[in-house]
Design a protein around this nucleic acid. Structure first.
Lengths: 144, 144
DNA sequence: GTGAATGCAAACTCTTTGCATGACT
DNA sequence: AGTCATGCAAAGAGTTTGCATTCAC
């Protein structure tokens, strides 16, 4: 994820944005996440690490990163938006939510990507992103 | 969609819920929708038809219908939740959003469904629903 | 008649915005 | 020095909840 952090900081700089403490901290912390996080989770993580950042600055940073396509927004119907680093390579994964415990996990699937690309080709829209959200029960919640 | 309306009313009755005016109106109106709608759109439609229903009752009706699996909730990252009738047959479609005008359209794709089922089989989760949201530019917005 | 369904208003949560202060170039 | 970035507090939007009233059974 280090690669993403540097790529993001460089892209922000190239786009003419100043390097403030709040935004840089958000970028560095986001780059260390394993999967998608909410703005609040990010704020909590920062607080625990003693790098408290105002919630408004977090939202502003995430918004800007989204505009620059450096983060991907994911709304999985939980009532909160989740954010995760968007790899410059286009490499990505999708998510699965547990109805029991709310856990979010990720998966990748070649065949699914192929099906989506083929589908995009036959639609008369120009498609530039996609999200596949599965819902179900995780192994832990399924165990009796 | 008439079939869905009757199915929903019957299911509610069978589950022991009383038939109040607000909920019945929501069910009948929802059954006439072509695609997913928001609670506010539903409220506006009802008002135009002179069947005003309190917004709280609309949310409560949609919530109950969701629990009974009679409606499908879709959160496509617009900041609002959309709802649409869930066919008892399991027949369904997915959605594509236009970044330009916000339009939501629907599509069906056999190959995509196959890929998702195959994927679900190989995950150690029990998967019971899925959503595929595409984002892009609609033909109208793409035209210069 | 009893308890569920409804509607209003208030509460709540997440997110955005206005504005004064502080920081980067 | 001149802007842009930040943080606080307040505003906004969507959704949920408390409570008294009305309605279905």
């Amino acid at each position: 994820m280090i690669a993403w952090t540097e790529h993001a900081l460089r892209t922000l700089d190239a786009a003419g944005y100043r390097s403030g403490a709040a935004r840089a901290t958000v970028v560095r912390t986001l780059g260390r996440q394993h999967c998608c996080v909410t703005a609040r989770e990010l704020a909590d993580t920062l607080r625990e690490e003693g790098e408290e950042v105002g919630i408004a600055s977090i939202y502003r940073a995430l918004d800007l990163l989204g505009e620059l396509r450096l983060v991907h927004r994911l709304d999985a119907g939980e009532g909160v938006v989740r954010y995760e680093p968007a790899m410059p390579t286009g490499e990505h994964h999708h998510h699965i939510l547990c109805d029991g415990c709310g856990r979010v996990a990720s998966y990748e699937d070649e065949r699914l990507e192929h099906a989506i690309h083929a589908l995009a080709d036959r639609l008369s829209w120009s498609v530039d992103s996609h999200d596949v959200v599965l819902r179900g029960t995780c192994p832990a919640c399924a165990a009796p």
